[in-house]
């Protein structure tokens, strides 16, 4: 893996894109790596595409935004359209397979385009609320930015107060992380 891993995550407000980005960079930082995360923000408090730029490296990260992502994850049709600009020949582009009729919108210059059924699995196997944690598992598997154990610790750090009230949530979230990773592993195998 090269020096800096660049990830662009995009979705609709409420899909939890920013919290996933926040937990991922926190995990990397806690591992002693350098991480940089910047959300897109504008005057619209709601309604726009929510976009997170994350970079993880062994040395200080350069510019906060980038043009060429190593990994793009787009969780809505608008997000697909919005993030095409960050795709180049080495980009892995992941989108949720629940989107219908999106084929023409998908980038053609990516190294690989991958559809994963994260939303479906969240709904059927786990819980709709852990959709974004599945995505986080997928991102970690695709980039190897942190160990799975470190990712779990970061989730624990962020959601520990909820787990304390309901320990089943811990299991659910960890399961979601693992399922996300499996989805990518299977598809890339």
């Amino acid at each position: 893996m090269k020096g800096t891993v660049k990830i662009a995550l995009a979705g609709e407000g409420g899909q939890g894109v920013q919290s996933v980005a926040g937990i991922m960079v926190e995990a990397a930082n806690d591992e002693g790596r350098e991480a940089l995360y910047i959300p897109n923000f504008g005057v619209e408090q709601r309604g726009g595409v929510s976009l997170a730029f994350c970079q993880i490296s062994d040395e200080k990260v350069g510019a906060p935004k980038f043009r060429d992502a190593d990994l793009v994850i787009a969780l809505s049709e608008r997000a697909v359209r919005r993030t095409r600009q960050y795709v180049h020949k080495d980009t892995l582009f992941i989108y949720d397979s629940s989107m219908q009729g999106i084929e023409d919108e998908l980038p053609r210059n990516a190294k690989k385009v991958l559809a994963i059924p994260a939303l479906e699995i969240a709904k059927k196997e786990l819980h709709p609320r852990v959709f974004n944690i599945i995505i986080m598992g997928a991102a970690i598997e695709a980039t190897k930015i942190v160990e799975m154990e470190q990712a779990k610790k970061a989730v624990e750090k962020r959601l520990g107060y909820k787990f304390a009230q309901n320990p089943k949530l811990r299991e659910l979230n960890f399961k979601a992380l693992e399922r996300g990773a499996e989805l990518v592993k299977e598809s890339l195998a």
Binding site: G22, V25, N29, E34, A35, Y37, P39, V61, P64
Partner: peptide, 10 residues
Amino acid sequence: DGYQAKMRES
């Protein structure tokens, strides 16, 4: 600037 204001890093 706004990037420095809003981004997170160590």
